[in-house]
Design a binder for these strands. Structure first.
Lengths: 233, 233
DNA sequence: GTCAAGTCAAGAGCAGTGCTCACAAACAGG
DNA sequence: CCTGTTTGTGAGCACTGCTCTTGACTTGAC
């Protein structure tokens, strides 16, 4: 790789960025449904066919936006979580939950793009799993720190069935080294609860029940913290 | 209302059904994205414009499918839950969770339609909330029965903040009469966990971690049963 | 400095979409 | 029977994703 890129390469990178920016603008404004390559080209003052030099299809453009969204969420959560004293494990969990929710509320369409129904039938997995695990890594690190400091007191976990123990162990190895599978199984429960709750709030499934969801959200975060055995203080 | 409808009315009902059936076929086969009024008309041997005599727009057709999906899910869950002895509260919870998951796995696209990202930007709420609460009512009834039999031993719930207590109380009034707000708040946590977990499984967010999700699912169901204080036996 | 190879934007065009509208049949109730 | 409402039709508008050819531009080796 040369740091000095050719003029052509620089123009290409810039245009790629501009296309993505305009696409994101449209997705945010009107949803992924209404994203149109032609209107992007119109807005950028170029022929619609030229877009295909940069993204082979509409779905590929959407995939690029998805990756960016994962990255943006990961960065946001990392940011808020890093402003909490490292030794206060429970506060770190609370911070990351709040971070997820607040990012999701500020980026509804991008959240829907990532955690809503996969739009084009099937998702391109390879390029997305790395940025996707970024926010999961925050939880993993937090658990690893708590385990190392010997402050985790997880709710009695009945001995895990072998399959789940294996899965949880493998996740622990990559994301939370040292943490036993029992703790990680609980963390997976908390994890799915968190995103289920945020999705329900954003997608309107709480309107009849916990509509201003702030208090319910805090309540659930505490319940899950207890489930994982995060220390109270 | 006359039970004997005119020939015209009968034809209209039948065609409405056929349009929905063909639409559902397409959604199941290729996703809501690819649903096309023109191809429905083609398949039914009629002019595309004729569809608009029955559904004013594509989104209205989708809304009709959503209502049907809610109803189908509700019926399925009611069915499996009713085959469990009424006094075994925990088994009823397990059965309804399994029912939700199994319906979701058998009707992926319809589940995504209902619990995925709201496609057209905003959802028509009024017509959907009634069928939507049908499956929630199963959980409510189960909790009400358990509370009346005095077998619920919920995890210590720190006194609820006033807003959440009010919300949970109102839900209890409509769905689980007699059940205190503290229990219902936990039930809401379990509720969101259940659908978060199912969504993650269907939408591929567990591929790296709990991919064959059976054991993890059972584990989470147990955790949530404990959280709500459902009796072990 | 020249010139072939590679890259890129443009425009026309294909096949498809949702939706509207004027019109002609078919039906319903008086 | 006949009037007024429904229903189906086909043409048409404005739009979409995507492909392909054509011509202009940039690049880097000679």
């Amino acid at each position: 790789m040369n740091a000095i890129r050719t003029a052509r390469q620089r123009a290409r990178d810039e245009l790629t960025r501009e296309i993505k920016a305009e696409a994101r603008r449209q997705v945010v404004a009107e949803g992924p449904q209404r994203l149109s390559l032609r209107s992007i080209a119109r807005e950028l003052g170029m022929a619609s066919s030229a877009i295909y030099r940069y993204f082979p299809s509409r779905d590929d453009l959407l995939t690029a936006l998805i990756i960016d969204a994962y990255d943006s969420l990961g960065a946001a959560v990392e940011h808020v979580e890093h402003h909490v004293p490292r030794e206060n494990i429970r506060a770190r969990w609370q911070a990351m939950c709040a971070g997820v929710r607040s990012w999701a509320r500020q980026h509804t369409q991008e959240y829907a793009l990532v955690y809503g129904s996969p739009v084009p039938g099937y998702r391109a997995p390879e390029e997305t799993i790395a940025p996707a695990s970024r926010v999961a890594a925050v939880l993993g690190q937090l658990l690893a720190d708590g385990w190392e400091a010997n402050v985790l007191r997880p709710v009695r976990a009945p001995s895990l069935p072998p399959g789940l123990a294996g899965q949880a162990g493998r996740v622990a190895d990559t994301i939370a080294p040292g943490v036993p599978a029992e703790v990680l199984a609980q963390a997976l429960v908390a994890w799915t609860q968190l995103f289920g709750m945020v999705s329900f709030e954003l997608f309107g499934h709480l309107v009849g029940s916990a509509d201003p969801a702030d208090e319910f959200f805090d309540h659930a975060v505490e319940c899950m913290a207890d489930l994982m055995g995060l220390p109270a203080a």
